[in-house]
Amino acid sequence: MSAKTKISVVDLRMEYVDENRGIRHIATDGLTLDVKENEFLCVVGPSGCGKSTLLSAIAGFLKPRGGTVSMDGRPILEPGADRGVVFQEYALLPWKTVLENVGLGLKLRGVAKAERDAVAMRFLDITNLTHAAEKYPHELSGGMKQRAAVARTLANKPEVMLMDEPFAAVDAQTRLTLQEELVRIWDENRLTVLFITHSVEEAVFLGDRIIVLTPGPGKVRAVVDVPIPRDQRHWATINANPQFVAIRDRTLALVRGLEAA
């Protein structure tokens, strides 16, 4: 893997300020991490530790109160199509069909309807949603919405995918398929992925590295390398892989240690 840094977060401090009530909440403080080019980086940490906030800073939705966030050496000032986001709350547009939602990024770039529908159908196929192409989001189950959200981000071909617990609402069976698909797409398209999850197993299965965050205000508690070769990462066999088991248990212990702290 190339060691070039794609995204650099240095000493990040994020705050939520409620001016009316005079409340200031520090979500992350002194958070430093790098995402390398073409890396699959997973972030785990207890609920409320600032994972989604970190993602918002990288996506350009929220401005840092302190520290810097940059991509390819340039500070991130606003959201852009180079950083695709899969939101924890899906964020599908309710007035568009699944097909239109998935093709939206292409539409915004002026791609003709026939072409963007074809591309969207391909990603709906990957996410197992072809049958739901003409449905509206309110007609989908939680897991289907989540898959549609993933398809929408993939179809837009971003350089970086920022994914906030994208498979949390998917059934176990579909989750395994999606994880393997995601790894395949990531590999084929030389994407850079920042993947937030609650599941340590998922993080070890997917990640090149895992960042373990402390409870809020979040900072990096540990960085775990996952040197398991990609061709060994199949759900059918990975549980028999001693390296996988060792890394999983160590990471779990790191996260548990947080709970005790």
Binding site: S56, E78, P79, R83, F87, A91, L92, L93, L108
Partner: peptide
């Protein structure tokens, strides 16, 4: 979150109004 989603997909301000604000 819908506004953020549109911007991350590459929407300009005008496109945001067209695709998100007006229909919402």
């Amino acid at each position: 979150v819908l506004i953020n989603a549109a911007y991350s997909l590459g929407a300009t301000r005008l496109q945001l109004i067209q695709e998100v604000i007006l229909p919402a």
